[in-house]
Design a protein around this nucleic acid. Structure first.
Lengths: 211, 211
DNA sequence: CGTTATCTTGAAAAATCTCAAGGCGTGTGG
DNA sequence: CCACACGCCTTGAGATTTTTCAAGATAACG
């Protein structure tokens, strides 16, 4: 299924690389050498402010492509969140190993995602952002029950919150029967999609998940 | 100077359109017909949430291009903030009137801007966002003294704040000697670039601009 | 098993928003 | 030309949301 959009006849054998949890794949400012597709594991891309604050711009799950940009240098760092395997990809114009992807299409999708996130961060309340995020992960993983590769702090730094707020809200969601947290807090099961959607879109709901 | 990057030999005569203040140029979901370059005036692009909340994704000032996207429909609305004139632009692949621009390059620049904004909204305090915004406008207009085409509410909806917060902060900046507000609140003069930079980057400063 | 990282929880503080009122500028009709 | 209305901006006070700080609980790791 997900082979559909991949170009065949790569110019060279694909290069597969593996990273252990926490490993840096590339850093902001590094020379761009090519991109990757996630084969296993999960990656976060982040920017660091001068004083150490971190913004997680996005998470790259299985089959997602990251690290391909127009320009000479990476504009964000990429870090493996768990043990991760990636395969190199290239653009049609940049000769390179592995499969080819359409850079314009990729940039467009990323722009779309960035604008979605901007709207979330600018206009939504903490619980709306979190509900929206959980639904997004579920959609991307094609399941309402999934193992979350990211830690609470990653989620916080993605949603513009603190780790304490994420923890409180997530446990509040569980108390309200919206989700179930299992498998030593790593696995999540979304129990009430309709109400999570209401929450995500800021529709009033008679639920109390805070305090 | 700003002719340098424009392709010549357009396929047809350029089309110039004008809009009065507040006019809708196109709406989210509209069929994409082509893009525009701002000749005079200023444009904001925004997204509306279901309940009326609005996120201003960006401002398009003189010479900026907007409205060109890959895909069939616009992902945001564009509205003239003041009396505005635009000239149509096209991509190389999409035959159309007016000059040609590189869509990939454009999308890349927009992605960059969107990620910058995301980082601001996610990780910065209100006064840091505003200082950063003022410096950005000054940089784009090539002057520390400029007429702001956007209203307070536009700034608020761009920076994820309320109009009251923007007003308080801006007047606080003036009280602190960082800026001067003139010409019935429309014109702004940045007086202390170094300190505004410090503010924008979250470096501690012995200034009190709040309260 | 002890040690460290991650997560949770509470209470107080801080940032920002909301609500309410008033001020200023501009345009319009009398 | 004045008076009024309307849009936009400012300001204050209190409410709300989210953070901060501080502790403890749970899980991961050697």
């Amino acid at each position: 299924m997900y082979l559909r959009n991949r170009a065949r006849a790569p110019s060279a054998a694909p290069i597969i690389r593996t990273f252990r949890a926490g490993a840096q794949i590339f850093s902001e400012g590094d020379e761009i050498t090519g991109g990757y597709r996630v084969l296993a594991g999960a990656v976060r891309s982040c920017r660091y402010l001068g004083d150490g604050r971190r913004q997680v711009l996005g998470f790259h799950l299985i089959d997602d492509i990251f690290g391909l940009e127009l320009g000479a240098k990476h504009s964000a760092s990429a870090e493996a969140m768990v043990a991760t395997a990636v395969v190199s990809v290239s653009t049609r114009s940049t000769a390179g190993p592995g499969e080819y992807v359409d850079l314009l299409e990729l940039a467009t999708k990323q722009l779309q995602q960035a604008q979605d996130l901007t709207t979330d961060l600018g206009k939504k309340l903490a619980h709306e952002r979190l509900a929206n995020f959980l639904l997004d992960v579920a959609r991307r993983l094609q399941s309402t029950s999934f193992r979350m590769p990211m830690r609470r702090l990653d989620i916080a730094d993605h949603l513009g919150l603190t780790i304490e707020s994420v923890s409180r809200l997530l446990n509040g969601f569980e108390r309200a029967g919206l989700v179930r947290i299992i498998d030593r807090k790593k696995r999540l099961e979304l129990l009430d999609l309709p109400r999570l959607c209401d929450l995500a879109d800021g529709r009033p709901t008679a639920l109390r998940f805070d305090s």
